[in-house]
Design a protein around this nucleic acid. Structure first.
Lengths: 327, 327
DNA sequence: TTGTACGCGTTATCAA
DNA sequence: TTGATAACGCGTACAA
């Protein structure tokens, strides 16, 4: 079913049908109505790809995430998808995985689809290889990166200042009288390296001798296990900062089982201020990295870029601690 | 940058370049190498939309969810996206919202993009209007629906038998000596109507007089509030089944605050066996509706359908209860 | 081994 | 108010 079928059925040319479809003026009322009826009758709808070819516009954007299942990232994707859908854009959402080669392959796929803009969600996309892929294959289309920054003229970065945020977390624990504070990192990423820096800076500012960092995977189970390790290795620990809420929830469980009282004996802080922080028991104090503002800004900047309007090239967002029951 | 630019630069015709790109045989080695070098040099990559036009294949599939942020659904989307990406398909993922008109509009958009297959995730897509939209606009492309069924020749349905599952939950609580069991529903959906049926059937089988059903929204906060209501209205309650883990976690908090011991005084069961069940305290007993099998099956059936291989039209999956600390 | 010519489904230009 | 024609970028039958 093509525009020609409708044209033939209506006894007009394809251009007339096209005009009706695109609501152009200068069509006789009867002609328009006849064509509209036929379109309805045949359930005809124009082929967007063909239209895109001649219009030189795909009306598609790409959204890349390392893993779509990470709640913290999907909220960003949702905001972008919804807002751009309103403006007629279709979103291609891809989980790239952490492998740099695959990230490159995904970006190239988006290029082949001729997307008109790209959102990169997660600090993983700050990698050198991504820089090169964008520079080489997508030097002209707008790119926003959430929680990251890439120094390219067509790329806009939005970063939450988690380094200062985690430093503030350390200070908060110190104010609560904590002396033995450790940090639990999860997966290696630029964002996590910044948080770690913030932790070390915070400890340094206090002049504490203890600045131990533990490594966990990004899961409840891993948070649980590493925390049992911590209690064994550093029995005097009285404060733990986790790089993400999820591992912190596992940690809380371990603490509970060990008989330690939270926050009487030990304080705990997570990062993301996610649903996990509210669900956990006790409810988790967490560093809010302003995900909602990030999303809104990202959408806003991407739309501006798509419309060739002037806009910032990089934005740094403040973070703040949401205190709950674990501190 | 088009195939013609490469052809001109190489001093050959576009068809020769096309042959090189598509790895056809019968090309002189030197010609091929020259062209390959040029493609590399110019960072040329073919326009997939144009190719799709002539090949009559978009290599795109659509994934529809009511809300991409619902963890329980996003896992399905992830599995489908990953598996089909391996096979060269690009996924258009859309959050439709619950509004039927908008669902229809999303399906029509996918049709205009000429997707080659569609996955519908969530029982909301069993709605009459969706049936008609598919029947009218997409009578020929394969559709799988996860957690639902639509009686159309091109649609395959996968359903978890949550009705029996919830009935089993009631029976489990009865075995634990529970006499006053209530049910907390969340949003209205076909799946939830089945769970409710299961609850009522379970109560009926036991001959219990009490079969009260409460209504909540799909959130931690709502689970918390409704549970406080329950304790006020039915102080003798000793078992609560929640239609989703999320509301159950809110409920657990309310029970804890009320001073009731779980599971000594009261037993709690959720549905989905999600991460929430593991994070909550006490860890939540939950009805596992086999999300992973659902995903695998959906992918499998969709691929078979895309390849025109024979496959089942509808599958019913068993559920099972994962017992943790709340029963 | 390579080139020519056409078609995929649409829109825009220009002429009628 | 409408139609013929070219163009978008590509793949392929057929010819050379």
């Amino acid at each position: 079913m093509t525009i020609y079928d409708i044209a033939t059925a209506a006894g007009v040319s394809a251009s007339t049908v096209s005009r009706v479809i695109n609501h152009k003026s200068g069509i006789r009322k009867e002609t328009r109505e006849k064509i509209e009826k036929l379109i309805e009758e045949y359930n005809y709808s124009p082929n967007v790809a063909a239209r895109g070819l001649v219009m030189q516009s795909s009306k598609m954007i790409g959204i890349l995430l390392v893993d779509i299942r990470v709640v913290h990232h999907i909220d960003n994707a949702f905001a972008i998808e919804q807002e751009l859908a309103k403006r007629g854009y279709c979103s291609i959402i891809m989980s790239t995985g952490a492998d740099e080669a695959n990230i490159g392959s995904c970006i190239r796929q988006l290029e082949q689809r001729r997307v008109e803009g790209i959102a990169l969600i997660g600090s993983m996309f700050m990698a050198k290889s991504t820089y090169h892929t964008i520079k080489t294959y997508l030097p002209n289309i707008p790119v926003v990166i959430i929680n990251g920054y890439i120094d390219l003229p067509n790329v806009t970065g939005i970063i939450a200042d988690e380094e200062s945020g985690v430093k503030d977390c350390v200070a908060l624990l110190a104010r609560k009288g904590r002396k033995n504070i450790v940090y639990v990192n999860d997966a290696d990423s630029p964002a996590n390296r910044n948080k770690r820096k913030g932790f070390l800076a915070g400890i340094r500012a206090l002049g504490y001798p203890q600045n131990k960092i533990y490594e966990a995977a990004t899961s409840y189970a891993s948070g649980y296990e590493i925390t049992k390790d911590i209690l064994r290795e550093d029995p005097s620990v009285d404060g733990i900062i986790y790089s993400v809420d999820l591992t912190a929830t596992g940690g809380l469980r371990a603490l509970l089982e060990s008989g330690r009282k939270v926050p009487e004996d030990i304080s705990v802080i997570g990062v993301d201020n996610s649903i996990y922080a509210k669900i956990s028991y006790p409810q988790l104090t967490s560093l809010d990295n302003n995900a909602e503002s990030q999303s809104k800004l990202a959408v806003d900047l991407l739309i501006k870029a798509l419309n060739n309007e002037p806009h910032e090239r990089s934005v740094l967002l403040k973070t703040h601690i949401v205190e709950r029951e674990t501190t």
